[in-house]
Write a protein that binds this DNA or RNA. Sequence first.
DNA 1: TACAATGTTTTAAG
DNA 2: CCTTAAAACATTGT
Length: 269
Amino acid sequence: MPELAEVEFYRRVWAVGLGDVVTSIDLHPQARVFRGTEPDSLRPLAGSTFSSALAHGKQLLFGFQGAGWLGVHLGMSGALSIAPPEHLADRHDHLVLRTGTQSLVFRDPRMFGRVRFDLGSEPPEWWTSQPAQVLSQAFNRKRFAQFLERRQGTPLKALLLDQSLFPGIGNWMADEILWRARLHPAKLPNQLSKCETSRLWRITREVARDALRVIAPDWGEAPDDWLFNHRWKAGGICPRPHCRCPLARAELRGRTSCWCPQCQDLASS
DNA sequence: TACAATGTTTTAAG
DNA sequence: CCTTAAAACATTGT
């Protein structure tokens, strides 16, 4: 489920525990979410103070004073929540951090998500070496144009999903971006005019900003003039005021895309 | 029942 | 080393 704004929402959920001391942890050692990580390596968390909560694209990093860094990726079905101190981990609650007053719960039924842990006082290398955030200053028009030039043969939709270029963009955001930019998901970067490339850059950032504003504080509902509320609906139509054309859906590179055949013409430019 | 779900990694080929 | 494409991963809900 989670993309940029949903991940930020979950960061804030756990952040209510900042400053608390972790008294104990519960985990499912055999769960796939610990692949690449020795579950026992999380032991130092017990007794440490929860001191920072960061999000970068779809990655989460939680700092624990005197212990280290807990990395969390929510995959397709992951979620973070707060529960009472006595909360019993159910089948899908793979990690629970208990403080005196509450439990921080990581849940992931499909287990495409991942948990890792690194010792040390500085954030781990995998965190600090991440690509520039879409809303950062470094993510400028020139850099964006370079991405498109380098990946000329990749359809725009697939390109936007590349986390090494656009951290945090996921399936619904990519569809929303292309719909607002009036560009067909299967269009190739080298078919874009300079003007369209600039527009796509601007709207990529606009959607990221809007998503964070609407969703991150309290998982607010998307407005009806976004594509979001229409894209999975049976018989969904384009929410653009003078369009109202039935939306199209097709699989592209293993993910379902939704677009408006009227507004997002493959041939036009 | 069968298919699809807001994601990444691996593997392979060019 | 770079780009591109497809399959695999695991579970649930329609």
